[in-house]
């Protein structure tokens, strides 16, 4: 029983628990999707502009 718990604990330590957060100084990665009401169709198209990327979701 003890070894089983340890294995689980180890697996939890090895597996990435949460995705690594993008940090200040990183380049914001592009995302694939459908762009509404936009002449741009990728973040790369918006170079030269300040962009506020806000994530929301539908449940």
């Amino acid at each position: 029983m003890n070894s089983f718990v340890l294995a689980l604990g180890l697996a939890a330590m090895l597996a990435p628990v949460a995705p690594e957060k993008l940090k200040v100084g990183d380049i914001a990665p592009d995302f694939e999707g459908e762009w509404f009401q936009s002449a741009a169709e990728s973040l790369g198209d918006l170079r030269g502009r300040v962009v506020l990327v806000e994530f929301w979701r539908t449940w």
Binding site: L22, V24, G25, D26, L43, L52, E54, W56
Partner: peptide, 12 residues
């Protein structure tokens, strides 16, 4: 919500 401000060079 989560948000990121990206400058003119694409940097967060």
């Amino acid at each position: 919500p989560a948000s990121y401000l990206v400058d003119a060079n694409g940097v967060v």
